[in-house]
Design a protein around this nucleic acid. Structure first.
Lengths: 137, 137
DNA sequence: CCGGATCCCTACGGATACTG
DNA sequence: CAGTATCCGTAGGGATCCGG
């Protein structure tokens, strides 16, 4: 077993809903936070309350659909707080929870690792590809 | 821009091959390491040299295909070293590079975070789902 | 024992159009 | 402004069979 199961108690599929709340493995945590846009959103929302349209511009390249979906998931997981102001032009603000900020901190560790080793990785890739191309040629 | 670009110099698509070595964003690092099986493999390979079939059993649930693919990718990125012993029954061993071990260390940070907050996340989910079910009902 | 090759299915994610 | 709904392409990944 290598699933890095962090918490068994969390595996409670006893909710009658169709949504399955299994966040048992590190993988599933990474899935959540590793979503294509999650990090970007968490970072922006971590700076302070931010509006939907703001995010749409800040998180460059994101589609309306994915912004909404990611926002919902992060909110559901308690990483984001959604505040609706029932004004005439609707106003909705999102902000990161302390938990999300903590998460961001630990993501920094990964960023740092990436920073230190991107060069190594590219080098390794080029070498690997060259060696492999030699076989093909 | 929120892509958390860590290193611009690495974005060198000047390789003539069809494979694109762009590892510019944290996302792409997470993609690599966040693959469904990468972590499990890195962990096992980090303990010391391990054989193909061993991995197949240790990394519970993995298919032959994905084991091979993930192994190749990790090797290509310089995270794993593949050693072939030309014996009569083929013998291949994989082991994590120092770089991969470092990565594993930083993954621990994420694991720790997950450990601290899985409870919170599940709670948040249940609450969210309940509140949302109320709307549907 | 260690894979490669093939088929196929599904989830993620983009584009677009429509609402309160 | 802040979404929702729909269509559709792609890529990840499982199952299976074949080969050195």
């Amino acid at each position: 077993m290598v699933n890095l199961r962090t918490h068994d108690a969390i595996c409670t599929p006893e909710t009658g809903t169709e949504r399955k709340p299994d966040v048992c493995t590190v993988r599933e945590v990474l899935d959540r936070v590793g979503g294509k846009w999650s990090i970007g959103i968490i970072v922006e929302a971590g700076k302070g309350p931010v509006r939907f349209t703001e995010l749409e511009r800040k998180v460059e390249g994101i589609s309306r659909r994915m912004l909404t979906l990611t926002l919902r998931n992060l909110e559901r997981d308690g990483l984001l707080v959604r505040t609706v102001y029932p004004t005439v032009p609707p106003r909705v603000e999102y902000q990161a929870t302390p938990m999300a900020l903590e998460l961001y901190d630990s993501l920094i560790t990964l960023t740092t690792w990436a920073d230190r080793h991107t060069g190594d990785i590219t080098a390794a890739r080029i070498r690997y590809d060259e060696e492999h191309a030699a076989v093909t040629a």
